[in-house]
């Protein structure tokens, strides 16, 4: 079922930029699908954070592989981390305030603000 030689060969091969970009892409896709499928508000926010993390992986990959003399990609990734945390805090507080009115964590109940 598993080709052991292929696995050993892949373990011996060096990691390229496409490996990291593929991981970032997978995390981004998981975030998109999770934010569309899940009905819990907090889970949707976690999925959005996954998307941001995938974007950050792409930023840092490009910064590392494509010549980063001035740390541009790292700095922008830092901005994204800060903005993601603030966005999450604001969204959770809004959710808390809305929860006091509707008392439900299902996202379909919040279709009307």
């Amino acid at each position: 079922m598993f080709n052991i030689h292929l696995i050993i060969q892949s373990l011996n091969s060096s990691i390229t930029i496409y490996h990291y970009l593929f991981i970032g892409l997978i995390l981004f896709v998981i975030g998109i699908i999770g934010s569309m499928i899940s009905k819990n508000v907090i889970k949707v926010l976690i999925a959005i954070e996954f998307m941001l993390t995938g974007i950050n992986i792409n930023f840092i990959t490009f910064a590392s592989y494509c010549g980063n003399d001035r740390f541009d990609g790292f700095t922008i990734a830092l901005f994204y981390v800060g903005l993601g945390a603030v966005e999450l805090a604001v969204a959770l507080y809004i959710f808390y305030l809305m929860f006091q009115k509707k008392e439900s964590d299902n996202i379909e109940t919040y279709s009307e603000l």
Binding site: L27, I30, G34, S38, F50
Partner: peptide, 8 residues
């Protein structure tokens, strides 16, 4: 990837 899928 595994924990991201499990989280969802």
């Amino acid at each position: 990837i595994g924990f991201a899928l499990m989280s969802m």
